[in-house]
Simulated scan of single mutants.
Amino acid sequence: MLKPRGGQVLLDGAPVHSLSDARRAALRAGDFGFVFQDAALDPSRTVLDNILETVMYRGGDRSGATRRAEELMEQFGVGLRRTAKPGQVSGGQAQRIAICRALLGRPRVLLADEPTGNLDPASSDIVVGALHEHAREGGTAIVVTHDPALVARCDRRIEL
């Protein structure tokens, strides 16, 4: 969603490189969810506030988003950590919190970099199930991974 150095990026068939920075930022906030390999949580904010961060950028309803965030935290097994700071949770918990944040706004496109990299097999199953559910509900999940078990569960594979 940054200006490409070559080629072009199309969203719904329309080029986005010619849009203003503000319009591209609005598209990122409204249509995309991001799961970074290192979770990228703000260390000064609570787990719940890290998840709700996307609501600020989307201009959404905080109370409704809080209910959805709490549901996601329970689904991903981090509900008891809602008032903790990122430095007080494990790497696997931080990754699941980042996935909650990415799924909160039901984005059209979810981009995930090694979303199961810090997770045990049971937590990985929950994450992969959630990615499949996101796709069944009409979203798209694009996953970058080196994990053959995760690759095997994806609908399509593009190898670079």
Rank of each mutant, 00 (worst) to 15 (best):
K3R: 15
G6A: 12
G6W: 04
Q8I: 07
V9Y: 07
L11M: 12
L11T: 04
D12V: 02
D12W: 07
P15Q: 08
V16Q: 10
V16I: 15
H17L: 01
S18D: 15
D21S: 15
D21H: 14
R23T: 14
A25I: 05
L27C: 12
G30C: 08
D31T: 11
F32C: 14
G33L: 07
F34I: 07
F34M: 12
Q37Y: 05
D38T: 11
A39W: 02
A40Q: 13
A40R: 11
A40E: 10
A40I: 02
R45V: 03
V47T: 15
L48I: 05
D49M: 04
N50G: 14
I51A: 04
L52E: 06
L52Y: 07
E53N: 02
T54L: 01
M56F: 10
M56L: 12
Y57L: 14
R58K: 08
R58Y: 03
G60P: 00
D61Q: 02
G64M: 04
E70I: 00
E71Y: 02
E74S: 07
Q75Y: 07
Q75I: 03
V78S: 05
V78M: 04
R82N: 01
T83D: 08
T83W: 00
K85N: 03
P86I: 04
G87E: 13
S90H: 06
G91H: 12
G92T: 10
Q93Y: 02
Q93R: 05
Q93F: 03
A94P: 05
I99S: 11
I99N: 12
R101P: 09
A102W: 07
A102M: 05
L103F: 10
L104R: 00
G105H: 15
P107F: 10
P107H: 09
V109W: 15
V109Y: 15
L110E: 06
L110K: 05
L110P: 08
P115N: 13
T116G: 14
G117R: 09
N118E: 13
N118Y: 03
N118L: 05
D120E: 02
D120R: 04
D120S: 04
D120T: 03
P121Q: 12
A122L: 06
S124P: 02
S124L: 04
D125L: 09
G129A: 09
L131E: 02
E133L: 07
H134W: 05
R136D: 12
E137N: 10
G138T: 06
A141M: 11
A149K: 15
C154T: 11
R156G: 02
I158M: 06
E159V: 15
L160D: 09
L160N: 07
L160V: 15
